[in-house]
Design a protein around this nucleic acid. Sequence first.
DNA 1: AAGCGAGGTTCCACATAATGGAACTGCGTT
DNA 2: AACGCAGTTCCATTATGTGGAACCTCGCTT
Lengths: 258, 258
Amino acid sequence: MDESASTGTLGKAVAVLDAIARAGHPVRFRDLREQIGQPPGTLHRNLSNLMKEGLVRANPDNSYALGYRLLTFASVAWASNRFREIAEPHLRELHRQTDETVHLGVLEGLEVIYLDKVESRQAVRMHSQIGKASPAYCTGVGKAALSMLAGDDLRMRVNSIDFHAFTPKTIITAHELEAEIGLIAGRGFAFDDEEHETGIHCAAAPIHSPDKSFVGGISVTAPSYRVTRAQLEQWVPLVTRAANEINSDIAIKLGPRV
Amino acid sequence: MDESASTGTLGKAVAVLDAIARAGHPVRFRDLREQIGQPPGTLHRNLSNLMKEGLVRANPDNSYALGYRLLTFASVAWASNRFREIAEPHLRELHRQTDETVHLGVLEGLEVIYLDKVESRQAVRMHSQIGKASPAYCTGVGKAALSMLAGDDLRMRVNSIDFHAFTPKTIITAHELEAEIGLIAGRGFAFDDEEHETGIHCAAAPIHSPDKSFVGGISVTAPSYRVTRAQLEQWVPLVTRAANEINSDIAIKLGPRV
DNA sequence: AAGCGAGGTTCCACATAATGGAACTGCGTT
DNA sequence: AACGCAGTTCCATTATGTGGAACCTCGCTT
């Protein structure tokens, strides 16, 4: 999980950002200190530099939060992402067909980062999920994405997962997960059967660039009290078709080497 | 503009992120090299470290883009921002009253960063503007925010502005800007009369924490072909009332020292 | 109100990590 | 096929980050 050793000074600064992000709320100096174990002088300098760069901001009560410049960077990262741009019309179409929430996610290490979301009820803010990182092993998009990886790459990643039972149905052994990924790879789609959140299930399909340097997935998600497993299964062709169309578009618009 | 000298190694890494962000699309090694003037070895190492940290990603054609981890950081920064959270219901109310686009922005140095947006036509994606940085001197939110600053702080900032005439109506001298800010401070609201984008005008009012450690603004924006200046002026009481309510809520919910 | 103590800041000799010139590689180009 | 340049690697030098310890300050206790 921690690769900061190899990235030198930058790694230590990012560790500070990461600690603030994991807390999910403004944190105080001493909390950061005990969480990342930097000596007071070092931590102080790191925070000071991060603040000068706009990546961290200090509240008057000496608590620290992530800075607004991160929003600006993310805004550019999102707006200039070609995969998201290419996928968007297909997500809309899939949403139109199912009238349920549709997600686009990309695999980053052992996590899925959600790049886009289309949902009916605009009451829940669109923003709340974009950029969110979830474990790959217990989400539909994540398992679909994993199914595109080469065997050795997959095995390496699976072996470094730190499994956690979010629900009673979460897969928590490498062996079971590999079997599940094998199944998904064979049939071309995945389900998340309340593995990440009780009462929420989804159908997902993998997307990827031609050379697999990018792997991700799309999904249709719904609460299980309102949408049955059978309904989810009926949507599978729609999901896989949308995924295939996205894959073609990526190949056409970005070229075979991407 | 460039403060990297004082933040050492971190500053140089952020300069790379910034260069990629300013380009707004994936950039190649040589473009980065000539834009930020780092020697090849240094730039290569910086990119390599940033990639290990997930802040930059490489495309197969050796072009570089901002990494997905920035989205994750921004997601947390946005979700845990108390000002945005407190302002949100008031933005919605203001939108309900005017049926036009409502913005929330915060002043960061010489720029306004947009934290939230409510607009009628959901066709334009909400995301596209959040996190966006615009010059403070030619936007309604920015000028409103500037009007809350103490005289010496204001003068210092105004003197370091690099003015650019985005439209024929953009204020491009420090003298005129100071007069405008004085006017705004006196009456408590601001207009952007097509100063940033031709055909777009807005009415704005300042918001701030009790101790002014946070200053920002809210605005109602509309195209001038559809909404007259007179109409904007009629909305001023609504905008200032919403701003005042936000200010009270901030004082109540965050305490007097924030 | 004064003293105490935890939280936060500053300083500096030392160790480490960044620097950048130069040599190298390999891909695309003519 | 060979050239040229974008991109990569290497290494001696040097600038930079490191972290222990002393110091400050402010809120809380007594």
